[in-house]
Design a protein around this nucleic acid. Structure first.
Lengths: 149, 149
DNA sequence: TCGCGCTGCTTGCAATTGCAAACTCGGTGG
DNA sequence: CCACCGAGTTTGCAATTGCAAGCAGCGCGA
C-alpha cells in the first residue's frame, strides 16, 4: 500500500485514546507495556500513531488497561460502533447476586462518574441524558433487601 | 506435501470458520478475496491457518462474508466470548465513557461485593473437582447466572 | 486431442510488525 | 559534580504480513 493518506489519522486517534486511558489510570508507559506483555518502545510508537498494532497486540493492550477489547477495536475503526454505551445500570439492577444496598452503592458511584465526566470534558460525547438526568429511580421494583448487615 | 494440519492449531479454527462461512455463502475463494479486498493467495493461507491475519484484514473478510466482525474476532480468540461471570462486568468494560480509573474502581467494588456474597454462601474458589463429584449446593437460590442473554 | 476458464495452491519479495539495545531528558542523592 | 533512576523516545534487526506472479487440477466446447 503505497498510498497511505488516510490511514494515519485513524490510528492516531487510537493511540491518543490508549494514551489517554493509560494516563487516566496513572500508570507509566513501561508499566502498561509490562502489564500488556508488549515492549515499551512499541507501545510508545503505537500511542503516537506511528505503528498500527495487530489485533493480538490490541487485545493485550486492552487487557493491560482493564478495558474491553471492543472499545479499542471501535476506536481503531475495526468494528462498527455497536451500542454507544451499554446499560451498566440495567446490568447492575438485573444482577440477582447483589444485595439492595450493594446495588445502590454501585449505581451511585456509576452515576457520579458519569456526572463527573460530563462536567470534565465539557463536551458530551453522545446522548447520555437518559442516565442521570431523568428521574431515575434505582429502587424501582427492587425492594431493598435488608438482609445485608 | 505432508499436510501437517495440527502443527498450527491456533488460527486453524479461525481459518476453518472462515472457509465454512464462505462455502455456506456458495462463493469461491477468489470471489471472497475480491469482495473483501484481499489477495486470493493470502486468503487461501488464512483459511488453512498458515497465516494470522491482522485486525484490518479480519474486518475486511468479515465485510466480504457479510458477517459481524465480532464473530471473527471471537473465533480468532481476540476477544473473549463473553465474561463468564457477569453482565455487569461486561457492561462496565464496554462503557467507553468511563475512564480507566473509574472503570477499575467500579470493577473492584463489584468484585469485592461478589466475594463478600460468596463468603456468605461458603463457596470455595476454583477447585479441581475431578476427584470427588462436588455437585451443586441445594440451597443455591441465587447462583450467579452464568448465561448471557 | 487441444484450448479456455475456473477452482485453489506455491513461490519469491516489498513492506510492516514488534522487539532488544541504546539514547535523551528530569529529578534525587552521594 | 557525577552516579543513579525512571520517564519516553530513537535506532537497527529478525520475523511476519500481505501481495503479484506463476503453477497444477478439473470441467466444458470445438
Amino acid at each position: 500500500m503505497q498510498t497511505g493518506d488516510m490511514e494515519l489519522p485513524k490510528v492516531a486517534s487510537l493511540g491518543e485514546y490508549i494514551r489517554q486511558q493509560r494516563q487516566q489510570a496513572k500508570i507509566s508507559l513501561r508499566q502498561l507495556a509490562a502489564q500488556a506483555g508488549v515492549s515499551n518502545p512499541y507501545l510508545s510508537q503505537v500511542e503516537r500513531g506511528l505503528r498500527k498494532p495487530s489485533a493480538e497486540i490490541l487485545n493485550q493492550i486492552a487487557k493491560g488497561l482493564h478495558i474491553s477489547a471492543q472499545a479499542l477495536y471501535v476506536q481503531a475503526g475495526l468494528i462498527e460502533d455497536r451500542e454507544p454505551h451499554s446499560d451498566v445500570l440495567a446490568a447492575i439492577r438485573a444482577d440477582v447476586t447483589l444485595t439492595g444496598r450493594q446495588r445502590q452503592v454501585l449505581i451511585d458511584i456509576y452515576e457520579s462518574f458519569c456526572k463527573e465526566n460530563r462536567a470534565d470534558t465539557a463536551q458530551p460525547p453522545q446522548s447520555a441524558e437518559h442516565l442521570g438526568d431523568g428521574p431515575v429511580n434505582p429502587l424501582n421494583g427492587i425492594t431493598p433487601d435488608s438482609r445485608e448487615g
